[in-house]
Design a protein around this nucleic acid. Structure first.
Lengths: 62, 62
DNA sequence: TGAAAATGTAAAGCGTGCTTGACATTCCTG
DNA sequence: CAGGAATGTCAAGCACGCTTTACATTTTCA
């Protein structure tokens, strides 16, 4: 499952640590998600989409 | 995280076993999801929404 | 250039998502 | 009413999501 978290984050000029704090996860989790090491849980996927103001389907692509 | 899997399934007159087969998960998983015992993985959430022809946000509510 | 910030990675540990197998209960319907 | 279908639930087991701690590498910029 691909995602464009890095692009959305970069567009806002946030560091991985900035994003992690807003999502209430660790910086390593943000890094792992951006690098495609694993998929987020559904609740985290909701928080991510909500933070960026887009639909889940706009952030993640199967 | 709430969901309306049961309503979507019932509207199609599918049994939990029917749905499980189409989603490629066990019947117990469908039952657990409908009863809110846990949330699905993101890939499974995508399969569920896609099967019902709706957005993930229409099936699951934080 | 050199120091600080940002990013990448690893290991160990905990909780959860999903499995199979089995069994109990409830619901249909012939 | 009887018997099968559908649903609910439990237990054991495996893989993954996320954590903390720690350290290496890359990037940025004064």
């Amino acid at each position: 499952m691909k995602n464009c978290i890095q692009e959305l984050r970069a567009a806002r000029k946030w560091s991985q640590a900035d994003l992690a704090e807003q999502l209430d996860v660790s910086r390593q989790t943000v890094n792992a998600l951006e690098r495609g090491r694993y998929d987020p849980s559904l609740p985290l996927a909701f928080r991510i989409a909500r933070l960026f103001g887009v639909a889940i389907e706009d952030v993640f692509q199967p």
